[in-house]
């Protein structure tokens, strides 16, 4: 099967990319790894067509993983998922982010695809979004007139839709540091251990005071049109001491936070119950932490 016709453009500076993107308008798409762009285009999937493909991978300075004590982890829009997954820095500073990166598709895809691309694709089952939302990450958005920070919690609008304005490009992600008393985890539940889309995905970020939960952000993937915060679950959690009973309650509360659909991968009913199960497990995993070499 052949790809539809389009013009391929490979700007070498960010300014050039911005200019092209703004001039060419809605017929243009930004591409980094392209792994979420090319196969749907071949399938002629709705919304996949474009007249111009602007490949930004030759723009210098956008492939980085950095850490700073104040702002936290910084990941460039050209940084590949495989590099995030294997980064010592990411594994040390926020292993759940490395784990989320590793959950995406296959080794080959992760050697080409980027985390920014993964979120810009805005699939409801996007593997990297829940942990970024839970950790309070921010997308660095470069616009024609101004730059802005768009929190990941406000990034998604619908299936394959984001709140980016026309002409805006995400140049990177900033993930706040995990303090001593904070922890995070992401669990993806799928039938296969690789190459599968999530039935549900749950990310948990917790701020603890001994056994007591001081603050929490739970995010659910694949159970609504966008990744969603589980506010009811968070409410049930905050201010309480962790116990089996509490986790049961929190799991049940999370079920009221999502609106899963039935599709070829799972029924709504099953997804609902798996939200209950994996909310508990994600919280437990966050508390337990990631072992050396686990990811």
């Amino acid at each position: 099967m052949v790809l539809p016709k389009f013009e391929y453009l490979a700007p070498t500076t960010l300014d050039e990319a911005m200019q092209l993107y703004n001039e060419l308008g809605s017929g243009a798409k930004i591409m980094a790894g392209g792994t979420d762009i090319i196969p749907p285009m071949r399938d002629k999937a709705p919304g996949s067509k474009c007249d111009f493909l602007i490949d930004i991978k030759h723009v210098p300075g956008l492939d980085y993983i950095e850490y700073d004590e104040k702002q936290g982890l910084k990941i460039g829009c050209l940084t590949k998922l495989y590099d995030i997954q294997t980064s010592k820095l990411v594994r040390e500073k926020n292993p759940a982010v490395a784990q989320a990166a590793k959950y995406v598709a296959s080794t080959q895809i992760r050697h080409k695809g980027t985390m920014v691309g993964n979120i810009c694709n805005a699939s409801p089952s996007c593997d990297t979004a829940p942990i970024l939302i839970s950790c309070g990450a921010v997308a660095k958005v470069h616009g024609r007139d101004a730059d802005r920070d768009l929190p990941l919690g406000e990034f998604f609008k619908g299936v394959k839709k984001t709140n980016l304005e026309p002409g805006e490009i995400v140049t990177g992600l900033v993930i706040p540091p995990l303090a001593e008393d904070e922890c995070a985890a992401y669990i993806k539940f799928s039938v296969r251990k690789a190459m599968d889309l999530a039935i549900v995905g749950v990310a948990a970020w917790l701020k603890m005071d001994g056994k007591k939960v001081v603050d929490a952000r739970i995010t659910l993937g694949a159970v609504a049109i966008t990744p969603v915060r589980a506010y009811n679950a968070e409410k049930a959690l905050i201010g309480n001491e962790i116990s089996d009973e509490l986790l049961q309650k929190v799991g049940v509360a999370a079920m009221s936070d999502c609106k899963p659909i039935s599709d070829v991968r799972a029924s709504a009913e099953y997804r609902h119950d798996m939200v209950r199960v994996f909310t508990k497990r994600a919280i437990m995993k966050a508390l337990e932490g990631y072992k050396e070499g686990e990811i």
Binding site: L3, Y8, A10, G34, T35, I38, P39, L53, D55, K80, Y82, T107, Q108, I109, H111, K112
Partner: peptide
Amino acid sequence: RPVNSCATLAR
């Protein structure tokens, strides 16, 4: 790097 050549443009 190993990649899927079907999901890669020649360009």
